[in-house]
Amino acid sequence: MAQITLDGVNKVFGKNTVIPSLNLEIGKGEFVVFVGPSGSGKSTLLRLIAGLEETSGGRISIEGKDVTMTPCGERGLAMVFQSYALYPHMTVRQNMAFPLEMVGESKASTAAKVEDAARVLDLTRFLERRPSQLSGGQRQRVAIGRAIVRNPTAFLFDEPLSNLDAALRGSMRLEIMKLHQQLESTMIYVTHDQVEAMTMADRIVVLNHGVIEQVGTPQELYERPANLFVAEFIGAPKMNRIGGRIAAAMGAETIGIRPEHLRIVEGEGTWQGSVELTENLGAESHVHVLCGEAGSLVVRMAGAPSVKAGDKINLSPAEGFTYRFDHEGKALR
């Protein structure tokens, strides 16, 4: 059963329609990621659910109750902000106790819940510190702790990891996933990072200009993108697109081939080209190849690159992994 339902929800700022009418259902215990480029309306959508923005139309319901007009505090949701939004004048303990204090929870029960959350998040040593004395990752954990203590219906995360460095981002990603397994509560997570989306989500909602381009599991999005936008957004490096006569020959306006589905072949290949440059990532390499009519293509290969800039090589796409799109960018199946 759907726990959070958006029914024809839209948002207009002045003359600017940020989100045209949109429907979405989020199930209990699901980890849903809203992903899209900046300006895609993903944060606005999250803020509409949180109640920090008023809807311009449509209905939002949580657990069957219409909350469209309910103030944000009373929707039973907890939010983790990009800037963490910790109260700088309070200690970690006071920060985490604040939401409980606001609902008049008893001192003893507040203390117990804060201690519990601190233990889960490994914050016990820092309870008497102020946010300014903590590192970015610790601050983020405090923000999550402040959300946990309330035992909310759902957690909302607004790009929570984008202020952290790459290494910390990876470990916090794992911590949030573990937390989701532990708490089994609904989480809605906004990010522009498709790696976060792919690794964390039960279901991904791909947004573009306030419109849902596709909803599906990471695997579905990767294997069966509904359109060119999703195809190019999911997967790194980006899917190669080829238009013109080559696409027309396959009955499409555009065809897409993922870099991992292109092979460098000995002898005759589908396309000939010369290597422009290679990027060596250690475990894999990306080879940029300029092929006459097909344009510039990227090939992903395991290990160190076997070719070097200037080499003339032949490329062939793997059988059955060519995506076809019509003139509107819709996938042809």
Partner: peptide, 9 residues
Amino acid sequence: IREAAAMDR
């Protein structure tokens, strides 16, 4: 910060 406090009821 104000929004966080509002979310915290």
